[in-house]
Design a protein around this nucleic acid. Structure first.
Lengths: 141, 141
DNA sequence: CCCAGATCCTTGAGCACGTCAAGCACCTGG
DNA sequence: CCAGGTGCTTGACGTGCTCAAGGATCTGGG
């Protein structure tokens, strides 16, 4: 029975967390730049990607981890841009957000552009990418 | 000379990037919650951590990757909270932001709280943490 | 059937943060 | 000396976020 692995020191934990932030910030900056070229803020792009199918606003708020009223504002701007429309849900209280045809097209563009522009993985070989995936999944479990 | 490693597929790149976001978002949510208990927004806390020594506002804007006018607003709120003061820099155009005594105390608290609350590394053993660090450093290089 | 309580979205107020443009004081070097 | 550059500030505007309250609708127990 091998001994328990040592707990991370505070400095070590901090250093590793800072690296995660920096990598994620870089990825996020890539994403933001790419979607800005498509006329979207990063959050709007995230919402478009999330709307693979019509989604209740409540569910969207939960997924985004924000208040329902915030989703109202986001939805307002996306409907104003003609990318999304409101559809009645399972009862009259529920509103689904559904992509318009233009929204579907733009969503596909976003997905392609984002993946093509992903620079964070470009520097790793296949084994490293697999390992990183594994480690991140362990953190997320 | 071994062959070039295969390039990541679009789906693979996207999946790995999404994992990074999710891990970073979790870490960021931890950070935000911890510093909120100390009465700070996450950006304000980041600024306090960055002000280990008096720093020109220009430099801070560059480090944060935002416009100088934005730093003016951030500085305004931090000075209003008594955590930061403006000091003249190398010439009369330059303003340094320097922590007040209260700012120094709160900064130390932030550093401790953040490191203590870091959950993203808790699930990895020492070897895994080292490996993750190495992979992230490769991405950042 | 009735209605209290729950759900869902909206509205409004206020805050933080971000960009951009313009302005002013100050600095630099030809 | 002064044109051009630097650094910060101000102001306008947009986005996103929370919180509280409100109205419409739904649900299930009495």
């Amino acid at each position: 029975m091998p001994p328990s692995p040592p707990a991370p020191t505070l400095d070590e934990a901090r250093a590793l967390t800072m690296r995660l932030y920096r990598v994620a910030d870089r990825a996020r900056a890539d994403f933001t730049a790419v979607v800005a070229d498509l006329g979207l803020t990063s959050l709007q792009a995230r919402v478009l990607l999330q709307l693979g199918e019509p989604t209740p606003m409540r569910a969207l708020a939960e997924h985004l981890g924000c208040d329902a009223s915030n989703v109202t504002g986001i939805a307002h701007r996306l409907t104003a841009a003609g990318l999304v429309e409101r559809v009645e849900g399972r009862d009259r209280r529920v509103k689904l957000l559904r992509l318009t045809a233009e929204g579907v097209r733009l969503r596909a563009q976003v997905a392609e552009s984002v993946a093509a522009g992903a620079t964070v993985t470009a520097k790793l070989d296949a084994a490293e990418r697999a390992r990183l995936t594994q480690l991140l999944d362990k953190v997320l479990a």
